[in-house]
Structures are given as structure tokens and as C-alpha cells.
Amino acid sequence: MTLEFDHVNCIYDAETNQPVKALSDVSLTIGGGEFIGLIGHTGSGKSTLMQHANGLLKPTGGRILADGTDIWSRDYDRRSLRARVGLVFQYPEHQLFETDVLTDVCFGPKNLGKSAKDAEALAKEALEQVGIDKSQFALSPFELSGGQKRRVAIAGVLSMQPEILILDEPTAGLDPRGRKEILSLVKRLHREKGITVVLVSHSMEDVARFADRILVMDHGALLLNESPASIFSRRETLQQIGLNIPETLLLLDELRRAGLGTDDPAMPLTPEDTAEVILSWLQ
């Protein structure tokens, strides 16, 4: 499916003397099986944008179209939209509530009106996809480790079979191993299921390696909407709005300044690729 934001505005507290413009004239298209990174610092509007995508928030101006239909038109079924545009919030603690893992993951499909049997089948499939072992199905979700809770939370949304999967900061608070595991899980889901993935993060490093396209938000506006390579050629803009630049790129910049590099626009993001560039420069 395709989701289109058409000049979307969102103003909080409009009636008070301090209105907050959370989204300002945002136009963009999401869909087509892309892997999209959504970057911005805290308060840049990325969370607000995300909550507009599945109709949790209503724009104060502009339209949001799902396959061409305005999701705020009368009689539009926004509940089934929420199944098609799956949204995983940052803290799994905000959604886990059942006594065991499997029942919790069934919650979404059951809400969609699936029978207990179908819901369970969908839940099992989703849990398998996120790498939760059968032996853990009967555990209380509260006994799991941080990384496992996140997997179960993702499965809770996956079980509704979304066509677009939006993940808000799925690695926040995890240790390096946990981060790596969740990121490769997201990458695998994108590849295997062919769904559109939007990864929301304030870390460039997390997003840059996987994304086909990166959206950069600042002060409620969509500042950039381009490929990673083209985003990274604007390092100064990124730094101005307080985003971190991948360490690898900063290193190459420094080597260039020291006269060790050439002007070739290589933009390696992994240590291996970076070492390769440096080796080619040194020869």
C-alpha cells in the first residue's frame, strides 16, 4: 500500500496563547517496499508524524491518503488502517499486558475479529519471525530481557500482518549486542516479508546502513527526503540541526584534511568498508 502525506500540518494547543507547531506542511510518500529511515532529534516532530500515519492523530491541516483515500473522510475504517500500518512504540512496557507471551501477541489479531484459532496461528508465525522460541510462549512477558520484550512487542504488531511497519526507536536503551540483534531482525523482516519499513531513530548510524531513503525532520518540518549518500553529502546541515554524523564519515573527513585522502565521495558506513577506503588511499 501507499501512504501519502499531502501538506500535513499539526498544531497542538491551538486555542491557547502558546500554540505548538508539531508538523508544518509535511508532504511525502511512504510505500513500495522501501526501507525508510526517519531521523530527527527529540521534539523534531518525528513521533507526531508517525502517529499521523495510522490515524492516531488527526492533522489540523492537509490530508493523509491511504491508496488514494483520505483516511479522515467519513466512514473510513481507521481501525483496519491501523492493522495495515503497524506502529511499534518505543517502550514495549507500554503494550505488554497479558499473562503470557503468546496471548499477548494474539491481542492484535483478535481485535481485528480473527477467531481464536486464526489469531493463535498468526501470533505463532509472528513470534517465530522475530526469533522467540516456542519454549518462551508460555512465559510472562514481564520476565523477559529488554531485547526479548522488544521482539515480543514487534511480534504483537506483526501478527496483524501490516503492509507498512513503523518502528519508533526500537534500539533505545539496549546494549550493543541487543541493538545489533534488533537491527538485523528489522532488516530481515524487510527482506523476507517485502513490507515497507520505517525506522524512526535519532541515531544516524542505526539507520544509515539499511535505509534506501532517509527523512530528516527538524522543528516539525521535513527538511530532507533523499538517499543516504545524498544526505551525507550535506554533513554541515545535519550538524547544524544537532544530528550526529556517522563516525566513519567524520574519520574520512579528518584524513582528507590531513592530506591523506582523495576527494572521492566514498561514504562507507561499516568499519570494514572504511578500512578498505583508507587502504586504497594509502597505496
Binding site: N54, A83, Q95, F107, G108, N111, G156, V157, M160
Partner: peptide
């Protein structure tokens, strides 16, 4: 604020 977040997280899972 937390109530609001939880509500949204569950609504995203189809809760009514």
C-alpha cells in the same frame, strides 16, 4: 502522559 502513550500503543494494535 504515560496513559496517553499506552492508549495509543494499544490502539495501534486495534484496541477499542
Amino acid at each position: 502522559e504515560e496513559t496517553d502513550k499506552i492508549m495509543k500503543a494499544q490502539m495501534a494494535r486495534g484496541a477499542d
